[in-house]
Nucleic acid binder design. Structure first.
Length: 531
DNA sequence: CGCCTTTGACCTGCGC
DNA sequence: GCGCAGGTCAAAGGCG
């Protein structure tokens, strides 16, 4: 009897590998046969019900058992039958086996059904999460744009969410009017923003499951509140103000470039308005520049040499351009926009919506399965994520830099190589170093050995292959497209710190503090000084 | 002459 | 509240 049970188990396992869900006709035929054979098996103690009650215990996937099972069945058959076994015994044994096979088939069917149900739930949950992300992204965009009613209206039109709710659009100017210009009215501002976020959310609710909306509202509320804490105050004069609003100033993207020149050419025109000797780096004063492409552009940038490596120029951009940018700056803006979105999306995906002034990114985070697992604890607004496009490839032994990397180029050069940021354009034989994400100069490397000597296109492809980065880029592109929509109300360009257009608003999220790090060419004059 | 850089003073936020 | 550091302003001077 013990031998028979063992055999049953093996048969069960074997049969589980043969399940074919799709064949309903066969299933029906099987069920008929099972019913018929069940009567015959009663006398031998093989009850289908018993089999059906404990299918999971033996349903381990064990490939190869099929062969053993067949052999054992044959062995059993020959053993039992032997020379003087009757043909009828063989037939009954075969029928018995067949019966079990069929019953197991049915059990496996049920199991697969349950699995399908579970998978369906997972997919539904994923879709809900996706919608949550979209809504939060839109909320952040609104938070960044609402300082200018026109921008807000434009956003509504673009996203087609609130456009279904004329009341929301009409109410927007009132909200901004009610907003006290003084930074001291933080609470009022926060309430207004909260209201906006809720309305936005309501617009999206129509496409979503009702029972999840309350929960999502709470999430957006908390997220918006956190955002507002960062933004603190909003300049109602918006873009027209010469002084960058706190909102804009919170949007920071830095570029680390190996550069001999005073500044790197990013395609914009800058005017130096101040210089300060930074604490802890007296030998490298920090220079302050203001964008002069258009009067009143709030974008500022800080330029400072890296303390550890004086050849590295750290350029930190703050604010959003209110004007179209030259080609080179446009390309760079796209990259920065994608980077900002990259982080923003991730930050939104976090359960507690922590502020992400900086972000630890671990190598495991590139795994799509870890898309929601980035550590929100490592928050330091003074530091930032570094999108490192090179390795720290300075050869300390030879005191030199390896192959050409990213010579800074003029706008005209970048125009000759469309599709690449100006600061990535260089000599015809340009190479790249590593491409990696770093936090506060702590490289999160795509191993240099894996990338070295590869072309820029390959490295870009490597980055682009990351699902999260792709999502971010998609968001940025979508945002850009939306802004270019004919329905868009013309308004000053507001976007990423590099935003040629108002592209991706996430760059001004207030929580973004990116450092886009690249290493420029070795020793080649890098662009122009602010002129 | 206009635009730019330089540079000291002033403002502001933050930590103690 | 005070001091420090970062950030900004604006006058002065330089340069094309």
């Amino acid at each position: 009897m013990g031998r028979e049970k063992e055999r049953d188990h093996r048969m069960e396992i074997d049969l589980s590998l043969k399940v074919d869900i799709a064949d309903h006709e066969e299933q029906q035929a099987v069920e008929k046969e099972v019913d018929r054979a069940g009567v015959q098996d009663k006398g031998k103690g093989y009850h289908d019900d018993e089999q059906a009650q404990a299918p999971n215990d033996h349903r381990q996937d064990q490939p190869g058992i099929h062969v053993r099972d067949a052999e054992e069945a044959a062995e059993a058959t020959t053993g039992e039958v032997d020379d003087d076994a009757s043909v009828s015994d063989q037939v009954s044994l075969q029928e018995n086996m067949r019966t079990k096979e069929l019953s197991l088939l049915r059990m496996e069917m049920n199991r697969v059904k349950e699995e399908n149900k579970v998978l369906r739930n997972v997919v539904e949950q994923t879709m809900k999460d996706y919608y949550d992300l979209q809504m939060k992204f839109a909320t952040v965009q609104q938070n960044n744009q609402k300082k200018d009613p026109q921008i807000f209206l434009s956003l509504n039109g673009n996203h087609g969410i609130d456009s279904q709710e004329p009341k929301t659009i009409l109410n927007t100017p009132d909200i901004t009017k009610e907003r006290p210009p003084s930074p001291s009215h933080k609470d009022g501002l926060r309430e207004s923003e909260l209201g906006l976020s809720l309305r936005l959310h309501t617009g999206a609710e129509e496409q979503r499951v009702e029972d999840k909306d309350q929960e999502n509202k709470e999430e957006v509320k908390s997220f918006t509140t956190v955002q507002n804490k960062l933004q603190r105050s909003t300049d109602l004069t918006g873009i027209a103000s010469h002084v960058a609003s706190p909102v804009n100033r919170k949007a920071r993207v830095s570029v680390r470039a190996r550069c001999e020149a005073a500044t790197m050419n990013d395609g914009c025109q800058w005017r130096k308005y101040g210089q300060k000797i930074a604490k802890g780096n007296p030998s490298c004063p920090r220079a302050y520049y203001r964008c002069t492409v258009a009067p009143g552009c709030p974008v500022r940038k800080q330029v400072q040499r890296c303390l550890e490596d004086m050849s590295i120029l750290i350029t930190t951009y703050e604010g959003t351009h209110n004007h179209p940018l030259p080609v080179g700056a446009t390309a760079m803006a796209s990259t920065a926009s994608a980077a900002a979105s990259f982080m923003l999306l991730d930050s939104i995906s976090l359960p507690n919506y922590g502020l992400h002034g900086s972000h630890m990114i671990h190598s495991s985070d590139l795994n799509p399965s870890n898309i929601r697992t980035m550590n929100p604890i490592n928050i330091d607004p003074s530091k930032g994520i570094v999108l490192d496009l090179t390795s720290n490839s300075y050869d300390h032994h030879n005191h030199q830099y390896p192959a050409p990397q990213f010579p800074m180029a003029s706008s005209s050069y970048s125009a000759a190589r469309p599709g690449f940021p100006a600061w990535m354009h260089g000599k015809p034989s340009f190479h790249t170093g590593n491409i990696s994400l770093t936090n506060n100069n702590n490289l999160f490397p795509i191993p240099r050995s894996a990338i070295e000597n590869k072309s820029l296109a390959e490295n870009v492809t490597a980055i682009a292959s990351d699902p999260k980065f792709r999502v971010a880029v998609a968001a940025a592109i979508t945002s850009l497209i939306n802004k270019e929509s004919p329905n868009t109300i013309t308004h000053p360009h507001v976007g990423t710190p590099f935003g040629p257009r108002d592209g991706d608003q996430s760059g001004s999220s207030g929580s973004s503090n990116w450092v886009l790090e690249s290493l420029s060419g070795n020793g080649k004059p890098l662009g122009h000084s602010p002129s």
